[in-house]
C-alpha cells in the first residue's frame, strides 16, 4: 500500500503531461496537414516551398510530441499509432488549426495567430521541469520563430498592399480570431501541470500574445479583431464539421495498407 501511495502522484503527473503533449502535438500535426493542402496551389513557387517547409517542421514537432505522449501515458503507442489510428474524437487539437484554409489571406491570419502563440509557448516550455519536453521546446522555439517572421511579413504586405488584399486580410482575421482564445484556455489539466512547473500558465502568455499580434497588425494598418464569442471544445475532442474529412485524408494510406512500410 505504501508503495502505491508513493508512486501514484508521479503516475498522475506523467499521464497528465501525456495528455498535454498530445494537445500541442495535435495542434502541430493538424496545422501541418492544412498547410500541405496548399502544395501546388500557393500563389508563387517560393510560397509553395515556404508553406510546405513550415508544414515539414510542424510534422517534426508533432512526431516528437506524439512519441513523447505515447511513452508518458504508458500505452506504448508510437507516433504513427497516435497519428494514424486514433478516431476524430480522440484528437485534442485546438479548433483554430482545423479550420479550412480558405483563401491565402485566411491562411496567413491563422499563421499569425498560431506562430506568435507557439513562439511564446515553446519559449516558456524551455523552462519546463520535464527535461525532455524542455529540450524539445528549446529547439522548436527557433523553428517557429522563423515561421513567425514569414507570417508577419505577409500580414504587413497584404495589409499595406492593395484595397483587395487588405479587405481579404481583414476578412481572414475576422474569421479565425474567435478560435484564438482556445489556445490559451486553462482547464484542470493545465492548472495541475502549471502547479507542478511542467508547463507555463496560459494567462500571461495570452496577454503577451495580444500585445505582439496587435503590434504586427498596427504595422500592417489592420484593425485587431474583437470577437464577441470564442470557439471551444477541441481539447475535449469536439471538432468542427471540416475535421472529419481532414482526418480521413490524413489516415487514408495507413488504413488502406495496414502495417505497410516503404
Amino acid at each position: 500500500m505504501a508503495d502505491t501511495a508513493a508512486t501514484r502522484p508521479e503516475q498522475v503527473t506523467e499521464a497528465a503531461l501525456a495528455r498535454y503533449t498530445l494537445r500541442i502535438g495535435d495542434d502541430a500535426l493538424v496545422l501541418a496537414q492544412r498547410l500541405c493542402q496548399w502544395i501546388t496551389r500557393a500563389p508563387t513557387i517560393e510560397e509553395d516551398l515556404a508553406l510546405s517547409n513550415i508544414a515539414l517542421d510542424l510534422v517534426g514537432h508533432a512526431r516528437t510530441l506524439l512519441a513523447l505522449g505515447g511513452r508518458l501515458d504508458g500505452t506504448g503507442r508510437t507516433e504513427d499509432d497516435l497519428a494514424f489510428l486514433r478516431t476524430e474524437r480522440e484528437f485534442t487539437n485546438a479548433l483554430l488549426v482545423e479550420l479550412p484554409g480558405g483563401d491565402f489571406a485566411r491562411t496567413v491570419a491563422r499563421q499569425l495567430a498560431y506562430t506568435h502563440h507557439a513562439v511564446l509557448l515553446y519559449g516558456a516550455l524551455a523552462e519546463s521541469t520535464h527535461q525532455e519536453l524542455a529540450a524539445f521546446a528549446v529547439r522548436a522555439a527557433k523553428e517557429v520563430a522563423y515561421h513567425r517572421r514569414h507570417a508577419d511579413d505577409w500580414v504587413v504586405r497584404l495589409g499595406l498592399g492593395t484595397e483587395e488584399s487588405a479587405r481579404r486580410m481583414r476578412a481572414g482575421l475576422e474569421r479565425v480570431w474567435p478560435c484564438t482564445a482556445e489556445l490559451f484556455e486553462e482547464d484542470p489539466l493545465v492548472r495541475g501541470l502549471v502547479a507542478s512547473g511542467a508547463v507555463p500558465a496560459p494567462g500571461p502568455l495570452h496577454e503577451r500574445w495580444r500585445q505582439e499580434v496587435a503590434a504586427v497588425l498596427d504595422r500592417a494598418g489592420l484593425p485587431l479583431p474583437a470577437p464577441k464569442w470564442h470557439a471551444t471544445g477541441g481539447r475535449d475532442g469536439l471538432h468542427t464539421e471540416a475535421f472529419g474529412p481532414l482526418v480521413a485524408e490524413l489516415q487514408s494510406v495507413r488504413r488502406q495498407f495496414p502495417g505497410g512500410t516503404w
Binding site: 515539414l56 510542424l58 524539445f136 523553428e143
Partner: peptide, 8 residues
Amino acid sequence: LPTFLGCP
C-alpha cells in the same frame, strides 16, 4: 542532433 526536428 537533428538539424531540424522534421529533417527528412
